[in-house]
């Protein structure tokens, strides 16, 4: 598959008043054209920061960043910022967690959508833009686009707002759509509906999706491949079916065990302990303090083991597999 996004050895540090916080440690991640990749992990594992680094949305004054973020051959970290900016809203777009908050409360949907379209094609006349918007809204199963365009976000339901966001995100037929916990703020059935709409349309347009989530259940139905993130590292990456059938990293296993299941009497098992403090993180496996298999050797740097489209960062992997 033609590779669209290729992140290698991405390191990122926030400068704070209490000293540097190492948020990302050598993240490797790639998304092929049209592929759906899920980035899964607990809060604070670095998922959203990775997404914002791809968009170039991090405040450069407080952030030190190293490594490579390749997008269609260009290196986002080394190209002029204007190039990264030019890509936003055209080649890469983004969907946010809470659609209601992401839409501006004092502008009508029409004004915001027009501004989005203005980025896609400046030459559109008012009439063309209007038709474009109505068609895009119908594509996300909105039956009365005129009314929605005339509304403010607070007049629409969460599900409608989310569909408006999807329509805006796909208006430019982007190559990559970053969905940052889409619909987490919505109720489950509405979330599922909107995800289906997003999935179907992106497939039709050939848009790749980087799907950020902490919900493994949602990811299973949606993604081609899953990358599990922990404390600023990708600890395991595998095709979705393979990951769910045979999770190899102890953290992935723990994460799967913590998901409640309706079809089973087994209670979900919480993961003991909490995400480590990123300001004082040692070498070696970050999951070690919470891992049942931990051994003294886990303190040494962990190499990424790769085979047959899977990779996992655990020294137990060689013996366990």
């Amino acid at each position: 598959m033609h590779e669209l996004l290729h992140i290698s050895n991405l390191n990122l540090t926030f400068e704070t008043h209490d000293g540097p916080v190492h948020v990302l440690h050598g993240v490797d991640l790639s998304v092929g054209a049209g592929e759906r990749v899920a980035l899964v992990g607990e809060s604070g594992s670095g998922k959203s920061v990775t997404a914002r680094a791809i968009m170039g949305l991090l405040p450069d004054r407080r952030v030190r960043i190293a490594g490579r973020i390749g997008f269609e051959g260009a290196d986002i970290l080394r190209e002029p910022p204007a190039r990264t900016k030019a890509r936003r809203g055209r080649d890469i777009t983004m969907i946010f967690q809470d659609p209601m908050a992401a839409l501006n409360p004092v502008f009508k949907i029409r004004q915001q959508f027009t501004a989005v379209l203005d980025r896609v094609d400046r030459r559109l006349t008012g009439q063309e833009a209007e038709e474009h918007m109505r068609a895009a809204l119908r594509d996300v199963s909105i039956v009365d686009p005129g009314r929605v365009l005339d509304s403010y976000s607070f007049q629409l339901s969460g599900g409608l707002n989310q569909r408006v966001m999807i329509a805006m995100a796909l208006a430019s037929r982007p190559k990559l759509l970053i969905a940052d916990e889409p619909g987490t703020a919505l109720d489950v059935t509405v979330q599922q509906q909107t995800l289906n709409i997003m999935g179907n349309l992106s497939q039709a347009y050939g848009t790749a999706i980087l799907f950020i989530s902490h919900n493994l259940g949602v990811v299973r139905k949606f993604a081609d491949r899953v990358c599990v993130m922990y404390a600023g590292r990708i600890v395991e990456s595998a095709p979705t079916d393979a990951l769910f059938a045979d999770p190899r990293h102890p953290y992935t296993r723990a994460l799967l065990a913590s998901v409640p299941r309706l079809s089973s009497d087994r209670l979900p098992e919480p993961i003991e302990g909490s995400v480590p403090d990123l300001s004082k993180l040692a070498e070696g496996c970050p999951f070690r303090p919470r891992c049942q298999l931990s051994r003294p050797e886990c303190d040494a740097p962990v190499p990424m083991r790769r085979d047959a489209g899977r990779s996992v960062a655990c020294i137990h992997e060689a013996s366990a597999a």
Partner: peptide
């Protein structure tokens, strides 16, 4: 607020973000 991040993520000009959005 997220709506400003939205504006940035969609490449709205910084000037229009400051004076409008």
């Amino acid at each position: 607020r997220p709506f400003v991040e939205f504006a940035r993520a969609y490449g709205f000009p910084e000037r229009s973000i400051a004076l409008k959005w």
